[in-house]
Write a protein that binds this DNA or RNA. Structure first.
Lengths: 276, 276
DNA sequence: GCCCATCCATGCCGTCAGGTTATCGATCGC
DNA sequence: GCGATCGATAACCTGACGGCATGGATGGGC
């Protein structure tokens, strides 16, 4: 009834919570089903809480189980990140890893890195290009990232805003709306709009260049922050969308970080951003 | 060399990291010293990283160890919070716990709670008064809190700003500076200033009333946000400090929360704040 | 309506991780 | 140099965790 939860218990719980099936979950974990059942029971006894409703034919999460599913994922992320960051701290080659989307720095990266170099306590910065930068941060695979708000979930991160710019619609140059000085989201209602957020119908774009290629082919219309639209292919046009929330480019890092090197990078970013 | 870290290992590691003494740490943990030594060695082997420098007379943290000390604390906090929130979610009496400093709500609490009541998915809100509200949040003992920025560390929290007001110096009515229309921080250089932040010399104040009592006695001068200065004792005066950063009162909650009840409270706070 | 398939819980047993005590080796203060 | 202190090592013991076999409940097929 007491004592802290073990990560093994949480991982087992999440396995069951994920496919709501003890036998399959056990197989995925590489253990036998009874062992899993017993561990879950023990976890429930220890918490004093029923986590699953077992109807002998179907398994469902109780409300408390839903809470634990969310919290456990967060806790395990934190544990894994602890291990990764510790390993990284031990390499003889100390450096920071900055994650960004290729072309998504609005030209600010160079001045930031230059300013960082002049900061005391700074470390060499290695840049990696990746789409899911938030995950890299949470998993401890990157130390900082260039993110977009409000497109991305910033919870658990500390941030330094760099630049705020309106959303632009990117259209084929020949598109009837391309000549307009500005648009409203309603104008694009009938288009197949590809944004930064959420899934849309139609073809998927893996990178900005791919996305713009699709726009040029007339298969979609893109809504992107202004700072990724320069320079623009000559067969495309971009028009501000006045009633869309503007996008902020920001530097983000794990919230509880106390590393002086991260602090130096944040100071550099603040100094190099056009805001000041 | 693989597999996730266990919370037991992290807790043991932190015990050693805390007093840098294996025998004492083992005693505190209620185990024998060899068991602790072996567990730490195993942890080091598993991470592939030396965490302590043992000089057979003194134990110190390596740089990697310092990183792990920080990260492990965070991870264990997350695990403990997971257990607490799960237990709380199971009680038959669902409610939110809001932590605040007594008198620190600028009169906004009532309208917020009233607005919350009208929100769908809202839960009854129970208010507790406590100084270290950030800790309550991180430990899962509170679901939301009224905090002050920049006085408090908001990392890992989501926030909704409610009100921004200048810092005021609170002085005895008879103080030479009390008649001034405004002050600058330099004017208070020679005073024994008690703020919200950091330790100062002189007597400690546990509550706002205590603090104001000390001011009335001429033992200190207080710097506090304006919204806690009304009404003010008649023997005190308050004067805005023009070059101090203004203070924002905000509602905060754990960043990764997805609870609809918290969302309802946040919406209510946003609706009831004078900002809109 | 019976029977079988499915799926989680239980009982029993073996193994190893994690604990204990005893002891060693190294270092510092006197 | 000697004793005291402290972490590492050695040898051993116990119980938690996992495996296998089986039970019990439920739903679907014929």
């Amino acid at each position: 009834m007491d004592g802290p939860l073990e990560t093994r218990e949480l991982a087992y719980f999440l396995a069951v919570a994920d496919d709501l099936h003890f036998s399959r979950a056990a197989a995925r974990l590489g253990i036998a089903q009874p062992a899993l059942s017993k561990t879950i029971q023990k976890l429930e006894r220890r918490l004093g809480v029923v986590l699953f409703e077992r109807n002998s034919r179907t398994v469902t999460l109780t409300p408390a189980g839903q809470v634990l599913a969310r919290e456990a994922r967060h806790a395990l992320d934190a544990v894994d990140a602890a291990a990764r960051r510790t390993r990284r701290a031990d390499t003889g080659d100390p450096h920071l890893i900055l994650a960004m989307k290729a072309g998504g720095d609005a030209g600010l990266l160079s001045p930031i890195l230059a300013a960082c170099d002049r900061e005391p306590c700074s470390l060499p910065v290695r840049v990696i290009f990746h789409t899911d930068r938030v995950r890299l941060l949470r998993d401890g695979l990157a130390d900082a990232a260039l993110l977009y708000s409000p497109a991305e979930d910033l919870s658990g991160l500390d941030t330094e805003p760099l630049l705020t710019e309106p959303l632009m619609a990117v259209l084929p140059a020949s598109h009837p709306l391309a000549a307009r000085a500005s648009l409203r989201t309603a104008d694009l209602r009938d288009e197949n709009v590809h944004g930064q957020r959420g899934p849309t119908t139609g073809p998927e774009a893996r990178s900005l260049t791919e996305l713009l290629q699709l726009v040029a082919l007339g298969q979609t219309v893109a809504m992107v922050p202004r700072f990724v639209t320069t320079p623009l292919r000559h067969d495309l046009a971009c028009v501000p969308v006045t009633d869309a929330q503007p996008v902020t480019l920001l530097l983000a890092w794990p919230a509880h970080s106390t590393s002086p090197a991260i602090a130096a990078l944040a100071r550099a970013a603040s100094a190099a951003s056009p805001g000041r």
